[in-house]
Design a binder for these strands. Structure first.
Lengths: 294, 294
DNA sequence: CATGCTTTGTGTACATCGTACATGGATAAA
DNA sequence: TTTATCCATGTACGATGTACACAAAGCATG
């Protein structure tokens, strides 16, 4: 009877309760109703981490207006829950079951609003790219504009690292918000008198750079989660094979470089991103100059 | 009796045969031995796609020397089979079961030589990077040397696209062959009078670039495999939403750019890689020049 | 009010995965 | 011959995405 659920737990569905405690379905339903009236549990739709039960609809429907559009589950909620999971635990941990559980709903219920997991991920991407702030349409030089765009994209990837799993250069996503980013970059390049083809290539190159570095955000997190080691701790475990490699004498430059850093190699992604962006845009500048000279 | 196996099929293990045909294990063993003597099937160890049976060891042991090290299964063979699968069908299609099947062996047998799938993948990476040709130690200018290194890496990724799944910038793999690549790049940069930190960053940047573009090799293949559409065909399916987006008027530069290409956007990865590499190395040059001037 | 239809939510089941564990067969040792 | 050791394998478990059928409830029509 007196269960052992802790403070902020989700409650399973009525059916799960009934099965777990081997009682009839009606019994479980009534029990939940009683608890709800007592205020011990709450039917909160928005957040699933707090005490939240998707209430039996009947009582609510009597209060609100009739139309069946008043549903407690929706595509938007599913996408939102999925994004939360992917943000926190990575795309690998995202399963239809976990999404459903977070919403306090049966697994298959999600399929009423989502065609497949693949389409869910696509909708997640759409939603996430939707968070891109509208780009400032300054008429300044191309570099500040493009620099800003790259940083905006980087910030987004920082927030949603799983986004890097989704798109392909050869089959780009036609998401409005991502298009807006492309438009901004292309517009900035357009004023530099480049070939159309070069403009496009530069844009893809910029995108590819941000994307390529952002990939390692999730890998870093994943490595830390699975090994349970922070990066410093991990580096220590590698010090033995590392020093063996260095002692082999086959890699003199590398050895000299590593030893010159007292505390080992510690790449901070954000700093590296800055450095790489600068270097890459230097390359852009060369290409643009060259193009102007002919 | 007369089965329906086609020309180059693998044969299942003795045990699988026995179960399938409901005969005693000894019977199956003898049957295979007969077939082998008749030359109808061959115990070929190297290639599993042709008619290949991992021969029952007994007869071979009598021929060769005694020690138990003479085994028909080995870590090298497992890694090789796994690489073949990953090359052909992608890392996602690589399962312990598929590796075992390709070798005509029970699934769990592989675990005698491989601790886990994760470690298998690491060994695959080691083997694949082992294919990197030793870098030419020319004392020419940094650019030709680094350019060559990048292309070598690209070629490798073309051959083994799954490699891009494996490593993390923040936790680099300490594989000898990959270290040799790093050494070559660093050595080339070393002659340019750069800070150690900048040298390292440039090296990582180069690696990250090649890696970041190579990622899309597999994505391209995967997309083609799952949708069954070549890139041109896929582009046609996108033409409707594309033209709708273009007609919205929100993306003028983009629209102008696309319409200027008659036959649509068709990014060829290899060409793009070339272009990006040039641009990136232009950036390197700027950094190096700047560093020399002070 | 009764009866059937439609919508909505759910449970069950299947094929796939990695892999822990125990077993079965063969070889080596006594 | 008996015993012990080791290699190879089958079984089983808990995950996954999702097809399918069923149950409950709302609604329309008689």
């Amino acid at each position: 009877m007196g269960g052992d659920l802790r403070g902020g737990d989700r409650l399973p569905s009525t059916r799960q309760l009934a099965r777990q405690w081997k009682v009839a379905l009606a019994t479980a339903t009534k029990a939940l109703a009683v608890l709800r009236h007592e205020g011990l549990i709450e039917a909160r739709a928005r957040s699933a981490t707090t005490v939240a039960v998707i209430a039996k609809p009947p009582s609510r429907r009597q209060v609100h207006e009739a139309p069946a559009s008043q549903q407690h589950l929706s595509q938007r909620k599913i996408v939102g829950a999925a994004i939360e999971i992917a943000d926190k635990e990575g795309l690998a941990a995202l399963s239809m079951r976990s999404v459903a559980a977070r919403l306090g709903v049966a697994t298959m219920s999600t399929y009423r609003f989502v065609k497949s997991k693949e389409s869910l991920v696509l909708m997640m991407a759409d939603a996430a790219y939707g968070e891109l702030p509208p780009s400032q349409k300054s008429d300044g030089d191309w570099r500040t504009q493009i620099d800003a765009e790259a940083r905006t994209l980087w910030t987004l990837y920082r927030k949603h690292p799983w986004l890097t799993h989704i798109n392909s250069l050869t089959r780009p996503l036609l998401l409005p918000n991502l298009m807006a980013h492309a438009e901004a970059v292309l517009a900035a390049l357009d004023r530099c008198g480049l070939t159309q083809a070069i403009s496009l290539h530069l844009h893809v190159l910029l995108y590819s750079y941000v994307h390529g570095v952002a990939i390692h955000i999730e890998r870093e997190a994943h490595a830390e989660a699975t090994t349970g080691l922070s990066e410093e701790a991990w580096m220590e475990t590698q010090s033995v094979p590392l020093s063996r490699l260095m002692a082999s004498g086959a890699y003199p430059t590398f050895t000299a470089l590593i030893t010159s850093f007292g505390d080992g190699y510690d790449l901070r992604l954000d700093d590296f991103f800055e450095f790489g962006l600068t270097t890459l845009l230097d390359g852009f500048a060369v290409t643009i100059e060259r193009s102007k000279q002919r």
